[in-house]
Design a binder for these strands. Structure first.
Lengths: 187, 187
DNA sequence: TCTACAATAGACCGACCAGTCTAATAATAA
DNA sequence: TTATTATTAGACTGGTCGGTCTATTGTAGA
């Protein structure tokens, strides 16, 4: 593994744990076992390092949990149940929330570029979910609502459900929350 | 206004804007126009200052938006519509999210005491909302669901709705999100 | 082999961090 | 008045911050 890869991995963990402000370059370098000169060779600043981490680590990871390829034969309700179940099995997500949501929330007041990058991914995820909901409406599985607004609501409320205090969040708790979403959207 | 009060006010703003890690004592002192010795006279550390701010500023402010006294004659649906409307009119909340949610989310990985204090307030708010929903069920205004779970879902998804990127959040957007909640819970 | 550039390595820098210290002043009680 | 305590005031400290600098090493082409 190259030093660049080690840096991106370590940055993901440090920023997820301590936030952007709380993540120090020293801690990232120590955890990655990479010298400082190497980091500033690959990235011009801490911000650029984090931008790279979002593009090459955070977004791919989030898609693993919140994105699913649509097939003509798919059933929308099945897809959603599958996604929620998969998310609920990811202990990291359940305990500490969606890393994209967490970073976007923190950076909202600190940096427009990082915030926008996160927001674009939110749009990508909702666009995908919108297609799934449209399919569900065609199949008469899902209530007749504006699909895009509904998709946004599902993601934003899932993120809310994942952002409870770590000591009081659990797989069961999350599934209870998403049950409300499913009860709402199913016909 | 005493220096202690000035400090708590400034701490609320700085922590809301920059998060706990990003809020420096120097910035707080400058904004409050209070010397350092005065701060460390009233509070033994930055953490104690923030704990005081949560108890004496953040929690009261959050209750203004998310808490409502219950009266026997109240209609649950009216109360919720009123609360959502009031929240939507608070530009600060709509743009930058619920400060309680934001702090709890950040501190989840950093400090148990602050996280717990925030979580306790989440419990307080849900307990209050649970009573309102119970009343709504009695009046046959609201679907038959576990009131506590429903109350938690309403608050957590409202917080999610408020935690969108500031450049893409608006009063209208928030009301669209909460419309889904209302459509779900109303009979 | 020589050349040129990419990457590694870490000492070093000024700025800023939370927190300490001592001194001065205001308020209160005897 | 005097003694005592609460509060204000800010200079100062050791450590950490993001970032710079120079030197060295690895690597690929001529």
């Amino acid at each position: 593994m190259t030093n660049r890869d080690k840096l991106l991995d370590a940055t993901f963990i440090e920023v997820y744990k301590h936030g952007y402000s709380g993540a120090s370059t020293a801690a990232i370098l120590k955890s990655a076992k990479v010298p400082k000169g190497s980091m500033y060779h690959h990235f011009s600043s801490k911000k650029e390092l984090v931008l790279g981490m979002v593009k090459e680590r955070l977004i791919p990871k989030v898609r693993e949990s919140f994105y699913i390829e649509l097939h003509e034969t798919s059933r929308a309700v099945d897809i959603l149940n599958y996604l929620f179940k998969k998310i609920s099995k990811n202990e990291m997500l359940v305990k500490h929330g969606c890393p994209l949501h967490k970073l976007m929330f923190e950076m909202g007041t600190l940096d427009d570029e990082i915030t926008e990058l996160c927001h674009n991914e939110f749009v990508f995820l909702t666009d995908n979910l919108t297609l799934i909901l449209d399919l569900g409406k065609q199949n008469a599985e899902i209530i007749e609502k504006d699909s895009k607004s509904l998709a946004e609501f599902i993601i934003i409320s899932s993120w809310g459900a994942l952002s409870r205090s770590p000591n009081h969040s659990s797989k069961e708790q999350f599934l209870k929350d998403t049950k409300h979403i499913m009860d709402y959207i199913k016909i």
